[in-house]
Design a binder for these strands. Structure first.
Length: 931
DNA sequence: GCAAGGTC
């Protein structure tokens, strides 16, 4: 059997299709992994890397005294599978294979992924032949020739990839841990460091500093307005920017009518058709349609998976010869772009355009199938259309512009005007995105003498360089060799999620700045693109065989050790410095009570709140929703009323939760509860607010003398208000318990949030779980709850309610659990089921059962059953079991009816006993006779 | 919990 291993499922599928020729390919699914069988071959796709490197066990505790961040440098490194199913499947298939072909992508990572597959195969089959197929596009022609001329895995190239992996892990993990620990940050707030992310962040920080340091310079632009045959046009002074006002003024005063045409230059300008899309060019073009880099890639991947466009991760801007461009054109005739396609066929340029980069792994991004707008959402269609139009443009002739330039004299001053007109639209017929504009000028001849209608001297200022847009940053990263086509947009996403940068365009946060500056001071190497460039050149050497992984990695580790010498000596300073410089990020304004700073604070666990920096002297604070709903961060916007920064909660994979002004929010969310107090009125509320008391909780818990002093209300009155507040708190506590309960029992539905249900309950007077327990199904059904849900709500509520009551009566929790497990759920069960049965079923000692029963019956005010001593209970049990025909099962039934010994059995009325126990009358009489 | 690189 011939086993073929591709880099991804879709490649495996297409390779099978091409190699099978007219044979049928049979798809088999094995644990979510596809296998493609044809002839005597099986093709399977990896998912990129299926193994990952990590430190050997023992290094996972960040706070370890022994395994400090520095020790990661020399820690052992292991490979561990990340895709166990695929790895195991390959092992299984390898045992049956007599030839294995590695058909991963033809680039460095592809070679490493191939080597990973090779090692998996070898671990299961020591002797099978393993070769390598290389191809730069998954076309029939390339695949067939790759499999007819297989080569061997390039282990040097794969080793180059492993070198990069190890250096990245060791540097990234050790520095990330060090700086996070120094700045006392953990969990969601760690400070990450990496070969690619740190220089990228530094670029954004540097740009921000340039902008801050920028001093605008004034300059002046001199122009005039003239006309010919009622056609108005502008001319500008040939000096362009005047940096000196006096010079500009002089030129202005020397400008005199008439405006004499001294020269007319006519020409044409070639407007080259755009080159094929690589990933970066695609992202740039998509950003002009308003898409973020990550969105553009997500949509492109979706289009690719559906067969509408080719593989979107490529560095290639030259179509490979094997790509059948005419076939794609033919296919596109079935799309809404039929007219454009026919125009391209009729006007096709001799050779398609090409860019500078040809790489070996994938062709440029091009359409792969005809789509219709109905098959996808609007945005996806826009991206598809972009890819189609770009493809068509690369086959279309250049556009041509007619250019026109006039030179003038006005007095002693030289002026000029330029115009351009599209002479031949060329590719612009199909590629409608770029916006070069026509500039019309009237027809003039040398010697024409024209009026000067107006002279315009404008003062302007130079502008700072712009912040990076995502697409600009990606272009810059590519230029510097940072990241790859597949990872650049992710890196930006990482900087955003670490809260190093924010906004569009990208602006560094204080954290981003502090980390960059710290790294620049102590570990400059990791903040510069040079590190990547050095690694790249070493990888080139490893690939050629003139260097080995160990020496490159060891040299790199040596440098890292020297960095740590410095870092460890300054750990405290570094930590304090970062903490000081980022504190402001958490400040949201002045405390209304004492004027100190209010800060976003986190307590242990998920709790977060806004607290005063003056704590413990000032205890003003505002609660925030738990961090499970997102990390609280401040926004730019400031509240008009309170002067506090707005707050939002951010969480991975969720929309941000806008809190707005935390104090406004705090006031509003407490108003309803305040009004639940009978004595509350607007005057009292205003009084409390003016003292910065906003919640029922504060009224109930603040020091009473403090309360009196601040509100100037009499002690008697305050005591009454406080009692009311305590009652309201109790109601709120029960409501919140009920809210949690409802959330647990019934699932949310579209248009029916838990809040909606609970609010309907409260409006209807249902305030606590006990109210639900005593409610009826019909009533609940009018409150957004289905019949079934109503039933389970009531049942569950009863269980909880009963449990609470039993506890209150004094049944201890441990025993209660045993009763519940045996199905004794309500207080009634305790009073009306015989203690013998209770004891038998639960295994609880009869004395103890009697104690519990007594407590419950007294609590319920019903008579307590007669006590049976343990001794007589045991003896009775022995007696009964000695009677032939009575076993454990029958004994249980007898206990249910209160029969606990031979005597009570003998004296019982068999008819009544039969009813109570379900044992037939005849059988009972038989037993009575035997006893 | 950490990197960067694949892919979904």
């Amino acid at each position: 059997m011939h086993l073929i291993i591709a880099e991804k499922n879709i490649a495996a599928q297409r390779i099978a299709g091409f190699l099978a020729e007219d044979q049928k390919v049979k798809t088999e699914k094995d644990g979510g992994v596809n296998l493609y069988h044809f002839n005597d071959s099986v093709s399977i796709g990896l998912r990129g890397h299926v193994v990952e490197i990590d430190f050997e066990p023992g290094y996972s505790n960040w706070r370890s005294e022994v395994h400090t961040p520095r020790t990661l440098i020399d820690a052992g490194i292991i490979k561990k599978p990340t895709e166990k199913k695929i790895v195991n499947l390959i092992k299984k298939l390898s045992k049956k294979a007599d030839l294995v072909t590695i058909a991963t992508d033809y680039d460095r990572e592809g070679e490493l992924i191939g080597k990973e597959a090779y090692e998996i195969v070898r671990s299961a089959n020591k002797s099978v032949r393993i070769n390598r197929a290389i191809f730069s596009a998954i076309t029939k022609q390339e695949i067939k020739s790759a499999f007819e001329n297989p080569t061997e895995i390039d282990f040097n190239l794969a080793e180059a990839g492993e070198t990069r992996q190890e250096i990245d892990l060791v540097w990234g993990a050790s520095l990330t841990r060090f700086i996070s620990i120094a700045a006392k940050r953990g969990g969601n707030n760690i400070l990450s460091v990496g070969r690619v992310q740190s220089p990228t962040l530094a670029m954004i920080v540097d740009r921000e500093k340039e902008i801050e340091a920028f001093i605008p310079e004034p300059y002046w632009m001199l122009g005039l307005i003239s006309e010919k045959n009622n056609e108005i046009f502008e001319a500008r002074h040939t000096s362009g920017k005047f940096w000196n006002f006096d010079e500009a003024k002089l030129a202005e005063s020397n400008t005199k009518e008439p405006l004499l045409v001294t020269e007319v230059k006519k020409g044409t300008k070639n407007d080259h058709s755009p080159t094929p899309f690589d990933t970066t060019a695609f992202i740039v073009a998509a950003s002009r349609l308003g898409l973020s880099a990550a969105n553009a890639m997500r949509i492109a991947e979706e289009l690719y998976m559906n067969g509408f466009i080719s593989y979107p991760r490529t560095d290639n801007t030259i179509y490979p010869a094997s790509l059948d461009l005419d076939a794609i054109l033919t296919e596109l005739k079935n799309s809404p772009f039929k007219n454009e396609v026919e125009w391209v066929i009729a006007n096709k340029r001799e050779k398609p355009t090409q860019g500078k980069k040809s790489s070996t792994d994938h062709p440029p991004i091009h359409p792969a199938g005809a789509a219709k707008p109905e098959q996808m959402d609007e945005q996806t269609w826009k991206v598809y259309e972009l890819v189609v139009r770009r493809f068509l443009a690369t086959l279309s002739p250049d556009a041509r512009w007619k250019t026109l330039k006039y030179l003038f004299n006005a007095g002693t001053e030289p002026y000029t005007s330029t115009g351009q007109k599209l002479e031949y639209e060329g590719y612009r017929h199909v590629y409608t995105y770029s916006q070069a504009k026509e500039q019309e000028l009237p027809e003039l001849s040398t010697g024409d003498s024209l009026p000067v209608k107006e002279i315009v001297l404008e003062e302007k200022e130079t502008l700072p360089p712009p912040r990076y847009s995502q697409s600009k940053l990606i272009q810059q990263m590519e230029e510097l060799g940072l990241g790859t086509k597949s990872t650049r947009h992710d890196v930006i996403g990482k900087l955003v999620s670490r809260r190093y940068v924010e906004g569009t365009p990208l602006k560094p946060t204080l954290v981003g700045r502090a980390v960059t500056e710290t790294l620049e001071q102590y570990a400059g190497l990791i903040t510069k693109p040079d590190m990547t460039q050095t690694i790249e050149s070493h990888m080139e050497d490893i690939k050629k065989g003139s260097m080995r992984k160990t020496s490159v990695v060891n040299e790199s580790k040596g440098m890292l050790h020297r960095i740590f010498d410095d870092l460890e000596q300054n750990e405290e300073n570094i930590g304090n410095d970062i903490m000081d410089r980022t504190a402001e990020e958490r400040m949201i304004g002045k405390c209304p009570v004492c004027g100190n700073s209010l800060m976003i604070r986190k307590s242990k666990g998920m709790a977060q709140f806004i607290g005063c920096n003056g704590y413990p002297d000032c205890s003003f604070n505002i609660g925030l929703p738990s961090a499970q709903w997102g990390n609280a961060i401040r926004e730019e916007k400031v509240c008009d009323i309170h002067g506090l920064r707005y707050i939002k909660l951010i969480r991975k994979g969720a929309r941000p939760w806008d809190i707005g002004c935390p104090l406004c929010n705090h006031i509003n969310s407490n108003l309803e509860a305040l009004r639940m107090m009978p004595s509350m009125n607007d005057v009292l509320i205003a009084n409390l607010h003016s003292e910065n008391i906003y919640s029922v909780y504060e009224i109930a818990t603040l020091d009473i003398n403090d309360l009196i002093r601040r509100t100037k209300i009499s002690e008697a009155e305050i005591t009454k208000i406080r009692a009311e507040a305590e009652e309201v708190l109790e109601i709120l506590r029960k409501r919140s318990e009920m809210r949690k309960f409802v959330r647990k029992v019934i699932p949310p539905r579209r248009g029916r949030s838990h809040a909606k249900v609970v609010n309907a309950f409260i409006d209807d007077g249902i305030n606590e779980i006990g109210d639900i327990a005593s409610s009826d199904r019909k009533k609940l059904q009018t409150l957004f709850v289905s019949e079934q849900e109503a039933e389970s709500l009531i049942n569950e509520a009863k269980a909880i309610y009963n449990k609470a009551i039993l506890k209150e009566y004094g049944v201890p929790a441990v025993s209660l659990k045993k009763y519940m497990e045996s199905g004794f759920l309500s207080p009634e069960d305790f009073c009306f089921i015989h203690p013998a049965y209770l004891s038998h079923k639960t295994g609880i000692n009869i004395d103890t059962v009697h104690k519990h029963v007594t407590k419950v019956c007294e609590g319920k005010k019903v008579s307590v059953p007669e006590k049976i001593s343990k001794k007589s209970f045991e003896e009775g049990k022995k007696e009964l079991l000695q009677i032939a025909g009575i076993g454990e099962a029958l004994l249980e039934k007898l206990y249910m009816a209160g029969i606990t010994n031979k005597k009570s059995l003998k004296n019982a009325d068999p008819a009544i006993l039969s009813k109570k126990t379900g044992i037939s009358k005849e059988k009972l009489e038989q037993l009575q006779n035997k006893s």
